[in-house]
Simulated assay, not measured.
Amino acid sequence: MILRATVICLAMAGPAWAQSLQFPSNATLTREDVVALDSYAVPTDIWADGELPLQVVEGQVTRQAWRIAAPSLTTLQILRPLREQLRNDRFRVIFECQTEACGGFDFRFSIATFPPPEMRINIGDFRFLASERQGSEGMEYLTLFVSRTAQAGFVEITYVAPAALETAPIADAAATPLRALGSIPDAALADQLDTVGHSILADLAFDTGSAQLGAGPFVSLQALADYLADFPDRRIALVGHTDSSGSLEANIALSKRRAGSVLERLVAVHGVPRRQLEAQGMGYLSPIASNLTQEGREANRRVEVIVTSTR
């Protein structure tokens, strides 16, 4: 959405500012809250040393949540046109950051946002922008919190204007539809779960004999978390598999621990409710490649996800 600000000089009514961020036509306004006079703490820097720098501003506070119905969008693809619109309308960007550079988990949960389903924040992929503009009636402030799931993009706008300022709607959806620039693998996981009921989390990394999941981040886990957030009544089983090194009993135990490690990562890092998950292990009983080669053994060390219930 492009933010256009025009000064209309009216001799009798005084100055009025018309703002309109142009969202793509496949965007939907899912929630709007307007408070005639309130304060808002604008983040002005990253989370560091246990605190988030804030600037408290006052005025009419408008908050909106938008959902862009397109799979596999990137947060930059969503934010860039909005940022350019702000700059074209004389807003000055005072702070901008992305995910871990913002402060990660601590930054995200220091800012109040609308809850799901109106607004979804992917803690592994979000961007934040704060801007200001000197208007005829005083300072105006606008912030954007941008995130995404495998199925859609999400934007929360907070706009603070002088209480005396007459404003038009801050955003509408009339621009060209926004689509992903190219195919991104995370969309395929949801398709596989919906069509065949299972999928391999192919980007996970385990060493031989180890149940410790690598540091990541793993695209497949975020895609799975997004899928479960979109379908909160569905349950899945995480099923671990090993290569054929060692005894069957030891490998069944190892494969279950690997699945459990993935389960704990989904809960702790991605916020998936534990009730939607279970972990099981098959050992080396269900190979997908030959255990006679290094490549085959690596392929067999895997975790699959299986949809076990849709209610």
Rank of each mutant, 00 (worst) to 15 (best):
A69V: 06
L21S: 09
F218I: 09
A150D: 11
Q55I: 15
Y284C: 01
F231N: 10
D233R: 09
G260W: 01
E118W: 15
T149F: 02
I46V: 10
E304G: 06
V61D: 03
G124V: 09
M1V: 08
A150V: 09
V34A: 08
G281N: 03
G103T: 05
G59C: 10
L29K: 07
A299E: 01
R133H: 13
E298L: 10
I46Y: 11
V146R: 01
A215E: 03
G216N: 00
A150Q: 00
I8R: 15
L181M: 13
E156S: 03
G281E: 00
F23M: 14
F145V: 13
W47H: 09
T143F: 06
N26W: 05
A168F: 08
Q98A: 05
L129E: 09
T143E: 06
P81K: 10
V307G: 03
A268V: 02
P53F: 06
A48P: 02
G296E: 02
S309N: 11
E156M: 13
N291I: 14
R83G: 07
I184S: 11
A237H: 00
I157A: 11
A27S: 15
P273N: 01
R133L: 10
D172F: 06
T6M: 07
C97N: 02
A112S: 15
S245L: 10
E58C: 15
A229M: 09
P287A: 00
L165N: 12
F105T: 09
A171P: 06
V272I: 03
S39D: 15
R90V: 08
C102D: 08
L3Y: 11
L52I: 10
A289N: 00
P169C: 10
R63I: 15
V196H: 10
R234A: 05
A175F: 04
C97S: 11
Q222D: 15
I288M: 01
F126N: 01
Q60H: 13
